[in-house]
Write a protein that binds this DNA or RNA. Structure first.
Length: 217
DNA sequence: ATCCCGAGGG
DNA sequence: CCCTCTGGAT
């Protein structure tokens, strides 16, 4: 029993408009190299990009490599990221992940999903973000925003993130596949917000299947 | 299904 | 006060 979903023409129009609204989308996480990106994405679980950037700005000035992170140590890392939620688990994972990079990957960030998800604290979503942002692959990292937008709009309905990811893989057309991830994130963060979506100023308002469209305040 | 867990916004 | 934020491991 399939949920209501958009057709091919509607999906093409949806991305055309999101692309026009934001021609060159980019992650809002700050980082200087692939390793720092990986760490920033791990830290961003259940946290805002702004909050992560506040902590990583001083951290990344000192730490640019896995070896430097291991040298810093878990307790000092905790002090750096104390303002981020789940900091205890994250600090432990970042140290272990850095040690694994040194031991198994020559200190480099691996490019394939299997190797990435074997790293401590790195699941499918984080791996997909790194593959897309660092290596330019057409992966669809389904986070809280994309899960919500996919379901609300009818772009890629699904009761769990893997179903939504498969729906996106199947339906998102070229030339939008590379940056679809960023457009959906930005749309979810600033317009199609969880608590109070701003439908009155949404550029895909007429396409979206969301029932309870919100009026202008 | 539950735990981890601080900052920011409404 | 409450909910949300680019989840992962058990």
């Amino acid at each position: 029993m399939a949920a209501r979903q958009l057709n091919r023409d509607q999906i093409f129009e949806l991305f055309s408009r999101l692309a026009e609204a934001n021609p060159a989308p980019r992650t809002e996480l700050d980082y200087g190299n692939d390793y720092q990106l990986l760490v920033a994405v791990v830290l961003s679980a259940q946290a805002t990009d702004a909050g992560v950037n506040k902590a990583t700005r001083p951290l990344f000035r000192e730490v640019k490599t896995p070896a430097q992170m291991v040298a810093l140590g878990e307790e000092a890392l905790k002090e750096h990221i104390k303002t981020i939620g789940l900091f205890n688990t994250k600090a432990k994972n970042v140290i272990a992940l850095s040690e694994a990079l040194i031991a198994n990957h020559g200190g480099e960030v691996p490019r394939d999903r299997d190797a990435l998800t074997q790293l401590p604290g790195v699941g499918r979503k984080t791996a997909n973000v790194v593959m897309n942002t660092a290596f330019g692959e057409e992966t669809f990292a389904v986070d809280t925003h994309i899960f919500r937008v996919g379901n609300r709009t009818g772009l890629a309905p699904g009761k769990n993130v893997l179903i939504v990811e498969k729906g996106l893989e199947k339906r998102v057309p070229q030339p939008f596949r590379r940056d679809a991830h960023h457009w959906l994130i930005l749309h979810g963060r600033y317009v199609c917000k969880a608590r109070k979506p701003e439908c009155w100023r949404c550029v895909i308002r007429d396409i979206c299947l969301f029932k309870d469209k919100t009026p202008a305040p």
